[in-house]
Design a protein around this nucleic acid. Sequence first.
DNA 1: CTGAAAGCGCTTACAG
DNA 2: CTGAAAGCGCTTACAG
Lengths: 363, 363
Amino acid sequence: MVQSSVSQRVNRSKRLVSIKDIAKEAGVSVCTVSLVMNNKDHNRVSKAVAQKIRATAKNMGYKPNSVARTLRTSKSNTLGFVTDEIATTPYASKVLEGAQDAASKLGYILLTTNTNNDAELENQEISALLRYNVDGFLYAMMFHRKVDIPEVLEGSPTVVVDSEDAAGRVPSVYPDDELAGYDATDCLIKAGCRRIVYYGSATPIVAQGQRLTGYRRALAEAGIPFDDALVVNVLETTNAAAEAARVFDEIKPDGIFCFNDVRATFIYEAARERRVRIGADVSVISIDNQPFITNVIKPSLTTLELPHYEMGFEAVRQLVAILDGDKAVADLESDRGMAVQRQRDGSKTALRCRIIERDSIVL
Amino acid sequence: MVQSSVSQRVNRSKRLVSIKDIAKEAGVSVCTVSLVMNNKDHNRVSKAVAQKIRATAKNMGYKPNSVARTLRTSKSNTLGFVTDEIATTPYASKVLEGAQDAASKLGYILLTTNTNNDAELENQEISALLRYNVDGFLYAMMFHRKVDIPEVLEGSPTVVVDSEDAAGRVPSVYPDDELAGYDATDCLIKAGCRRIVYYGSATPIVAQGQRLTGYRRALAEAGIPFDDALVVNVLETTNAAAEAARVFDEIKPDGIFCFNDVRATFIYEAARERRVRIGADVSVISIDNQPFITNVIKPSLTTLELPHYEMGFEAVRQLVAILDGDKAVADLESDRGMAVQRQRDGSKTALRCRIIERDSIVL
DNA sequence: CTGAAAGCGCTTACAG
DNA sequence: CTGAAAGCGCTTACAG
């Protein structure tokens, strides 16, 4: 056994000071103490007594027991954070960080659990959280998709993070991929590009469709006709290199909007082989902001950042608004929340992606 | 307010079935039910009664209330997971995933909190977890260092993750950086390298010193004299490129062991400029396994992977062993745990880094 | 083999 | 303004 286990175990028996202890010490009843400790003493307890109670509580180092309070009130100030698979994508765990920050500011803590994309395990884990009386759930996915809310969650306030409830019933917070497609394309247009390739994903995920839609909208607004031949959808594992070659050899665009940073590396490689200078001969923009890519490849890649932190933060804000009412979250401000624009449609909240300007766009 | 908030709020009042309900239904007392539900009925409750209780419990969908049990027993089966700053490093949140998996298998759940490297916030957050009666703590850092355990944690069983308790008192689980340095260097030696550069970190973090030590041990074992001139410590932000150039222009090694993948990209760039072929003219190995680097650069980079998942898993295993005894964790097996070798020294557990072979080493 | 009772720490009507 | 009492759901001696 580990060396220090014994000495550590000893301390476990230490009983914390309770409301009863301070009642005895202050010479009042427990209910008076309770009133005061919950700041419900106004016009119910004399100033002097309240004063004394507060003082002795402080002296004795009183900390309210959340477990007891939960049992009594069946309100735990606790949120279940359920993920399908955390962190297969780097930085996706920023979602958790945002959720934790918001929760902390609102007086909540998070019970987190990972379902490994296993429906049975998911059920078990959620049931476990339920037994701990969590007040609500964050149902967080690894990427933007239409998702079915598990049945066990019915009856518990829930907010979906980085996905949309397929049934359209549960509030959902996710990136505005249409706007990201628009912003990225618009950025190229503003840089003077007129022949813009969308180097997209051949997998029909939500982001692909919406980013393409945004691409088309930006073109339309600029009066540039849409040309199907400029849409090149690829798979990282199969035809990405070949299609990147074709982009330069046949299409010869002046701007390229890549679905993500990884795909952009194929464009970079093809450009290098042809001595096409990105940031000088052709402009490139993409989405994801994986610093290990965007800062490492030359020239550094201009890209849009998915609002991971903000999604977590906003989802908690909405969940607590459901739980405790809008006033409870009124003065909650995200440190970085100002960077995103919300776009609401019923119970859906699409968060704008921030653009990170680097050197891959021709000035 | 969000559309569905009202319908969601309604369900909150739903009371779950309790031990009392099933006692009434089965015509027995609550304590008999309690005994049975906790499988303590052997030789204390008749088989028939136990049978009946189990059946009605199942019928009524009984779920034990963990909050009540915690209040009564002051054992919550709950662990506090405290991080300094989650996920500034991609995949570092694998630590959490490993911890969650182990916790789930051992019947624990995690309360997670983020201190943002703020001592005051850290105190608050830990105090909050204490109020929820967590049985113990994981104190998880973002990278391997000597760390001071906050005072609030005293008295609570704690295991440090990805760092070492500076005082040497609290059990600590971290990567075996010395062995990583040894393994990386040894891998180059086995590939025939004799003139091996250690392209390290100019920041004196724990990993730097230990990897260098491992490098020297491997050299010594192979009978290769250590040459201080082959140690090139750099900073990513300042002299990495210049020093990488010097490695090729002056030192001309046949093998390069890079402190991490990001540094390896400087070596790659310098090699490319000089038309030195990595994987053919010179062998390169590094540490981190950031797939976005290692798989993207050509040739793909052979590298060692930090045991993030395993550290989280192992730390929970040790913590629960302290809490519930060694037998409680006896049949816990990590899905991937077999890939690591533990190296124990008192309360310290160093986990081996797995080597991921790719194409940057000359065959 | 089974039940009555106390109690974990707290909150909340209720009575005075 | 203050206190006695009940109860949240459970477990654990104790008695029979």
